[in-house]
Amino acid sequence: MEKELLRLERVNKSYDGRQILEDLDLTIHENEFVTLLGPSGCGKTTILRLIGGFETPDSGKIWFDGQDITHLQPEKRQVNTVFQKYSLFSHMDVAENIAFGLKLKGKSASYIRDKIKYALKLVNLDGYEHARVTQMSGGQQQRIAIARAIVNEPKVLLLDEPLSALDLKLRQNMQRELVKIKRELGITFVFVTHDQEEALSMSDTVVVMNQGWIQQIGTPENVYNEPENAFVADFIGDSNIIDGIMVRDKLVHLLGKDIPCINTGFGENVPVDVQIRPEDIQICAPEEGQFTGRIKQVVFKGTVYDITIEAGGFEWLVQTITGHEQGKEVGIKLAASNIQIMAKPESEDEEAVSDE
């Protein structure tokens, strides 16, 4: 792991008496692609604005490379921001937009010219120096905004849902471009999104948030495969989440049956949440499954089928590459390694925050 670059320490922030962030701790490392992921209003953009210096915490500290920058003005931070609305100057051409910050810093004409050329090459816009930004596509405008940010050589690039206005194909292309740019620049990216697929495909580290609390921090694989609570499991991808009782280590009581699992340490006869991903469920002959049910719905999604099966008093979502006939009686088979056990929250407060 690279060395620590940014740290938010017991940060609190409220607006008009409404608490947005409460005692938030977050560490970000050099050369890391960190994505803040969560529903609208969870506090992710507030974190970005605090790092950028556009907001000041009510209490707590923000450290940058070992220095306290809690009250440092935005222009004095080694941070640049690409907003959801790119805020380009419509009366300027591409080169003038990119050069704006450099001119404010009093850089020489030759330095600015070299930086513009380098930045445009990096974002695949060679030869567009004199194009009008108003005549460019959303994807091109987004690249210009990134170019304008990176010529200032920030140590951290903050990106506030910069892809949300793009269509699906262009958004996927830009996801790949951003990862490539980040690797070439070797700087830290802090990216805000509510799009789970975006977070999983781009990030080194995903920070899942809800109601101003960090629910889980981990690699995309860890967050997807080992969610710490039902909120993370439900928010990251599709899930079947069912009430269960942990009978003892490696055995859970689920929908009236004792089912083997691999989880330990929950105690005996303890209520738990049981998570099973749709792609981890096997459809089999009725006599071969742990549960027997009937197919209620089959939806073709292009690469997989979403199949709804009513079994054991629960509607299961199953994803498979092969289709099945609606109304057919089938079995559901669960492998012990594909069952994820999660502790139930003990209070309403715990529903919004994972255990520290």
Rank of each mutant, 00 (worst) to 15 (best):
G106S: 14
K107I: 13
A109I: 14
A109Y: 09
Y111P: 08
Y111M: 12
Y111D: 15
I112D: 10
R113A: 14
D114V: 08
D114T: 13
K115Q: 15
K115C: 09
I116C: 05
K117S: 15
K117W: 08
K117C: 10
A119E: 10
K121H: 15
V123K: 06
N124K: 15
L125I: 09
G127D: 05
H130Y: 13
A131Y: 13
A131Q: 14
R132H: 13
R132K: 14
V133M: 07
V133L: 06
T134V: 09
Q135V: 05
Q135D: 12
M136E: 04
M136Q: 07
G138C: 04
G139P: 03
Q140F: 03
Q141C: 09
Q141M: 05
Q141E: 02
R143K: 11
I144H: 11
I144N: 10
I144K: 10
I144V: 15
A145R: 06
I146Q: 08
A147F: 07
R148W: 11
A149M: 06
A149W: 07
I150T: 08
I150N: 04
V151Q: 07
N152K: 13
N152Q: 13
E153A: 02
P154F: 05
P154E: 05
K155N: 05
K155F: 00
V156F: 06
L157Y: 03
L158S: 03
L158F: 02
L159R: 06
D160S: 03
D160R: 07
D160H: 02
E161Y: 09
P162M: 04
L163P: 01
A165Y: 00
A165S: 09
D167H: 00
L168M: 11
L168I: 13
L168G: 01
K169E: 09
R171Y: 00
Q172V: 04
N173G: 02
Q175I: 12
Q175E: 12
Q175N: 09
R176I: 14
